[in-house]
Simulated scan of single mutants.
Amino acid sequence: MSVLCIVAHPDDEVLGVGGTLACHVATGSDVHVCILSDGVTSRYDDEGAADEEIHRRESRARRSCSILGTTVSQYDFPDNRFDTVPLLDIVQTVEAEIEEHDPEVVYTHHYGDLNVDHELTCRATVTATRPLPASGVNRVLAFETLSASEWAVPDSSNSFQPTSFVDIGDTLETKLDALSVYEGELRDSPHPRTAKTVRKNATVWGSKSGVEAAEPFEMLREIRRYNSS
């Protein structure tokens, strides 16, 4: 099976779906991560300093994905400014990734996240995975991103309501190892983006779904194909 994960920034792939990606790898799937932005340029006024950090983040993304067992591609859409580029450009990038990797399962951000890049990544992914006759995508799932999903503007129409859970009891440590590569993105407690909170969050979702640790997902689209012969 082929699996594709579409995220806005380096570290989103670990925070949201790292344990699940490692599970796919462990069961023999081909897993690829597509990162659409460097995730740092919005923090810098100095272009030289930004370039140095971009290179560091790209290197960390490769290391993190190596720990998870996935391949990775990285793009340069403007950090925290996805709303300044045509959505079609993002859609076409995702479509190219889908054409290259031919995934059956696609993971992406939740549409209600506070971060505009997350929101538009989800929209672009849903557009790119629309169920055309030639499409091989059977499932599109949205994941939770700590400090983005739970901080969104409260509205019943965009709240994260998981419908699917993956037991990551065997891969939680792998997820945390991959997360540790992004040490510069981790915060001090009680911020939600800490290794301790990530572990606790997995335990809470696990308790809600009857396992030791879990990652939650909202199903955006599922197509069940049955062979009638």
Score class of each variant (00 low, 15 high):
residue 5 C to P: 08
residue 6 I to A: 03
residue 7 V to Q: 10
residue 8 A to N: 09
residue 9 H to C: 05
residue 11 D to A: 06
residue 19 G to R: 04
residue 20 T to S: 05
residue 21 L to I: 00
residue 22 A to H: 03
residue 24 H to I: 09
residue 26 A to Y: 07
residue 28 G to F: 13
residue 34 C to M: 15
residue 36 L to D: 02
residue 39 G to N: 03
residue 40 V to P: 08
residue 40 V to M: 10
residue 50 A to C: 03
residue 56 R to Y: 11
residue 56 R to H: 14
residue 56 R to M: 12
residue 58 E to V: 00
residue 63 R to L: 09
residue 64 S to A: 12
residue 66 S to P: 04
residue 70 T to C: 05
residue 71 T to L: 05
residue 72 V to C: 04
residue 73 S to N: 10
residue 81 R to I: 03
residue 92 Q to Y: 11
residue 93 T to M: 14
residue 97 E to Q: 14
residue 104 E to F: 14
residue 104 E to C: 12
residue 105 V to E: 09
residue 106 V to N: 08
residue 109 H to S: 09
residue 110 H to S: 11
residue 111 Y to S: 11
residue 112 G to F: 03
residue 114 L to Q: 12
residue 114 L to S: 09
residue 116 V to H: 07
residue 117 D to T: 04
residue 119 E to H: 14
residue 120 L to M: 14
residue 121 T to K: 08
residue 122 C to D: 08
residue 122 C to I: 06
residue 123 R to D: 14
residue 124 A to W: 04
residue 129 T to G: 06
residue 130 R to W: 11
residue 140 V to S: 02
residue 146 L to Y: 03
residue 147 S to T: 05
residue 150 E to K: 01
residue 150 E to W: 00
residue 153 V to H: 15
residue 153 V to T: 13
residue 157 S to T: 15
residue 158 N to T: 15
residue 159 S to R: 15
residue 160 F to I: 04
residue 160 F to V: 05
residue 161 Q to I: 12
residue 167 D to Q: 04
residue 175 K to E: 01
residue 177 D to V: 03
residue 179 L to V: 02
residue 181 V to F: 01
residue 183 E to D: 15
residue 185 E to R: 07
residue 185 E to A: 07
residue 187 R to T: 03
residue 189 S to R: 10
residue 190 P to F: 01
residue 190 P to E: 01
residue 192 P to G: 03
residue 196 K to N: 13
residue 198 V to T: 06
residue 199 R to I: 01
residue 202 A to T: 00
residue 204 V to I: 10
residue 209 S to A: 04
residue 209 S to E: 00
residue 213 A to M: 02
residue 215 E to L: 00
residue 216 P to D: 01
residue 220 L to K: 02
residue 221 R to M: 06
residue 224 R to L: 13
residue 224 R to E: 09
residue 226 Y to H: 14
residue 226 Y to S: 10
